[in-house]
Amino acid sequence: MEKKDEILKVLSLNLRKIMDESNIDFSYLQEIRLRVNKPLIVIYKNKEYFISKQQGFGSTREEAYIVSQNELRETMEYISNYSLYAFEDEIRQGFITIQGGHRVGVAGKAITDGDRVKNLKHISFVNIRLSHQVKGCATPILPYIIEDGKVCHTLIISPPGGGKTTLLRDAIRQLSNGNSKIPGLAIGVVDERSEIGACYMGVPQNDLGMRTDILDCCPKAVGMMMLIRSMSPEVIAVDEIGVKEDMQALEYVINCGCKMLATVHGNSVDDILAKPLIGRLVKEKIFERFVVLNAKKSIGFIESVCDSRGTVLFRGANSLERRTECC
Rank of each mutant, 00 (worst) to 15 (best):
M224Y: 03
L208E: 02
M210H: 14
D191E: 14
V222S: 13
A221N: 10
Y200H: 15
T212Y: 09
M225S: 10
M226Q: 15
G202H: 14
G223I: 04
C218R: 03
G202K: 10
A198H: 02
D216L: 01
M226F: 15
E192D: 15
Y200M: 12
P219S: 09
L227D: 06
D191Y: 08
Q205L: 02
A221L: 06
G202L: 10
C199Y: 09
R229M: 07
P219E: 13
R211S: 14
M226I: 14
D213F: 11
M225V: 14
C217H: 13
E195V: 06
C199D: 01
M226R: 06
G202E: 13
C218K: 02
M224N: 04
D213M: 10
M225P: 03
D207S: 08
G197C: 07
E195D: 07
N206Y: 05
L208D: 00
I196D: 03
I214A: 06
M201I: 04
E195C: 00
D207W: 13
P204M: 00
M224H: 04
E192V: 01
R211T: 13
R193M: 11
V222D: 15
A198T: 10
G197M: 02
L215C: 09
D207K: 12
I228T: 15
Q205N: 09
I228K: 11
R193V: 11
G223F: 00
Y200I: 13
I228G: 08
G197H: 03
N206H: 11
M224A: 08
E192Q: 08
D207N: 15
K220M: 04
K220C: 05
L215R: 02
Y200E: 14
E195N: 11
Q205V: 02
I196Y: 02
P219F: 10
P204G: 01
R193L: 13
Q205W: 05
D191A: 07
M201R: 15
A221Y: 09
G223S: 07
M210A: 12
L215W: 01
C218N: 09
P204T: 01
V203Y: 01
M224K: 06
M201A: 13
P204K: 06
N206C: 09
G223H: 00
G223K: 05
L215Q: 06
K220N: 03
L227T: 05
M201G: 07
T212R: 02
L227Y: 01
Y200W: 14
G197F: 01
R193I: 10
M210V: 14
V222A: 09
P204C: 05
A198M: 03
P219Y: 05
L208A: 06
L215H: 04
